[in-house]
């Protein structure tokens, strides 16, 4: 059992190391190809023709989806968190001394 756990741990760490090695450099978009989400960068005119970076100004397309295009969803998630914490506070509150 312990051996199986160690082998699983090693395989998982190898996955993590390889994916960290394959990561692009700091803040760079994945590639210069024509991407429907990120957009197309016109290197002669030095600007984006369309896409998420042109519309939101954020380099990270996932964040531009989570906080801009689907901002309502994030507001709902924050409300779920608020409700859960309000429930915990209501259950475990103590009397003021």
């Amino acid at each position: 059992m312990k051996k199986a756990t160690a082998i699983a741990f090693i395989i998982f760490s190898l996955f993590l190391f390889f994916s960290a090695y394959e990561m692009r450099s700091f803040g760079n978009p994945p590639s210069e190809m024509d991407d429907r989400i990120i957009g197309k960068y016109n290197s002669t005119a030095n600007k984006w023709e369309y896409g998420a970076v042109n519309e939101t100004g954020a380099n990270n397309a996932v964040t531009s989806v989570v906080f801009d295009y689907r901002g309502y969803d994030t507001l709902g998630e924050a409300t779920v968190l608020f409700t859960a914490i309000a429930g915990v506070m209501m259950l475990f509150r103590r009397e003021k001394k």
Binding site: F26, G27, N28, P29, E32, Y41, S43, N46, K47, V53, T56, G57, A58, N59, T63, S64, F67, D68
Partner: peptide, 14 residues
């Protein structure tokens, strides 16, 4: 931001 590294003050309200 242009292609490549982006500055910190990009992204609008994000």
């Amino acid at each position: 931001p242009a292609w490549g590294e982006a500055p910190l003050n990009s992204g609008g309200v994000l």
